[in-house]
Design a binder for these strands. Structure first.
Lengths: 327, 327
DNA sequence: TTGTAGGCGTTATCAA
DNA sequence: TTGATAACGCCTACAA
């Protein structure tokens, strides 16, 4: 016989309500009864059935991350794995758990969200890969479910998010390049519809005004190939490269090496590979592990206290070999 | 008011039992009633509450993957992300969902398994990173919960698993190197306690007998640094290198380049980076996406039919630049 | 083929 | 501070 709250109650000679209180709000139970019940719980290795709790309390303690198939590249991006790991670990410290899933290509972007909500499976969502105008945000708002976005945009200003200071990061990169006397920068940005790309371009615009350089933007998709392709088709036109991801910076560096060209290159993220690559990659460091943990904390707070939290984490320029060459 | 089975029943003028039957075993309901009920379900956008179903049916439709902190490296390993993605996607096609989590360093290896089981949160587990003598397998066996391992060992032969033909892969690598006239191979294997390492060494042993070469084994931990370190401390002693992961092979290739040494190098996995690296990496291709999907299918079968399935997927040698050099 | 009714294990309400 | 009892939403004997 599986032990349940009724058995504990029987043995402790109290009611099931009291056992439940010992578990959920021990402060409401007298010291003595409480000790007695706790002892029996321990003796029998009793653990509450989560499904029953969820049904009754309408809280599942589950959070979902739904990776859109259009962001498939995330799965070979080290940044993403680390983020997911930290989100999951921090959530578990609050007794929440993470469902990780992908959508299918033919589905609507919001379909999986709808299913999770309708089935009453989750208490909230972490939204990655935020767009400037993000359907998922509209949807979740409408449905009234708690969520936190990683990144922020201009439209949705009253929601919980965690972001890094992308604007400043790009500004620092531009400043550094201008200090290397660069005048025409090739800016390999991310996808244009992603909010992160907007912030980074803003930072570079500010820097170009403050320090007097020109730049031109091309949109890549964060992976190495796109950085390489954009670099290849622009050889000879620029005297420096700033890429919105380390992988694209590495793609650029490979092309430059192939072509025997030497230009300062700066990336973004500071993934592990960047310090090992040759040349090691100058980059804007983002505290990705902290982003993950903070996302978890913000969401838990949003769920339990209905509190909107906005966090912007600092970035820093890490100077390595790839920017230490003459233009 | 949230719509539930009772409301559907009321409107359709049938009992809740009939509505439940329409959902779970439509063949037991008369065409006419069935149509009527289905129509109303659709009209009201009714979706069954998963928590209630779970409580009643004792099936949560949740599967967990618990990554041990000792396998932290997995999170920066492209192989792993792709596996997780495919497992999750395939599971969702059977209406199962994936909980992804990590354990904490100070915990027992089986602690999180215990919690998930005791809370009645999951129907089964995918066990990664299988050891020769794996505590988690003992534990899950004892507790009687369905699970599938990715990899197989000699001890636990009556359990469901999906594996690739690691033995053959290593054999093919050895054969190829011997065809390049290599006589002394540096074998950079994975961690000694992992079952995958055992199979790969077996394959190389067979090849060394069949083709007459010598080899020496060193144990790395699958990441680039360990491949580089082992290569560096063995320079000059071998005329070829076989590494148990592409990342370690790449680490080896970097050291060789640095030192101006040219040796045939073969990796394992065939991660995306291997075809782009310079030199492109000769490697044993594993169908990682299929491994993930098959793991999901096997587990679902194990849960629903109690059926043990063992799958070994084929590998193939992909010959690229890194083995096309003279020793 | 359909309905009645009990129960899955817990939490919440209300009264004592 | 504690207990009795009614939900939570669904499934499934069992009976009709």
């Amino acid at each position: 016989m599986e032990t349940n709250i009724a058995e504990i109650a029987r043995i402790a000679r109290v009611s099931t309500a009291t056992v439940s209180r010992v578990i959920n709000s021990p402060e409401k139970v007298a010291q003595e009864t409480r000790g007695k019940v706790e002892k029996i719980i321990k003796q029998l290795n009793y653990v509450p059935n989560q499904q029953a709790r969820s049904l009754r309390s309408r809280r599942t303690r589950m959070i979902a991350i739904i990776v859109p198939h259009s962001a498939d590249y995330l799965f070979s991006y080290p940044y993403f794995s680390i983020l997911v790991k930290e989100v999951s670990l921090e959530l578990s410290r609050f007794d929440y758990h993470l469902i990780l899933t992908t959508d299918e290509p033919q589905e609507a972007v919001t379909e999986r969200y709808r299913v999770f909500i309708d089935k009453k499976m989750v208490d909230g969502f972490v939204v990655l890969d935020l767009k400037n105008d993000d359907e998922r945000v509209h949807f979740l708002r409408e449905r009234g479910l708690p969520f936190v976005t990683v990144g922020r945009n201009d439209r949705d200003t009253d929601i919980s998010f965690v972001d890094t200071d992308n604007d400043l990061g790009a500004y620092l990169a531009g400043k550094h390049l201008s200090e290397k006397s660069c005048k025409r920068i090739l800016f390999i940005n991310g996808l244009a519809d992603q909010s992160v790309s907007v912030w980074r371009e803003r930072g570079l615009v500010r820097a170009s005004r403050d320090f007097g350089f020109d730049y031109e933007v091309f949109n890549g998709d964060f992976i190495e190939e796109s950085g390489a392709a954009i670099t290849r088709s622009n050889l000879g036109k620029f005297d420096a490269i700033f890429a919105a991801s380390d992988l694209m910076a590495i793609g650029a560096l490979k092309v430059l090496k192939e072509e025997g060209v030497s230009l300062p290159v700066i990336g973004f993220d500071d993934i592990p590979l960047s310090s090992e690559f040759s040349p090691s990659v100058t980059t804007v460091h983002q505290p990705i592990d902290e982003v993950g943990r903070e996302a978890a904390r913000i969401l838990v707070r949003q769920i339990s206290q209905g509190q909107v939290t906005k966090t912007i984490l600092p970035v820093s320029l890490v100077i390595r070999e790839s920017s230490e060459v003459s233009a």
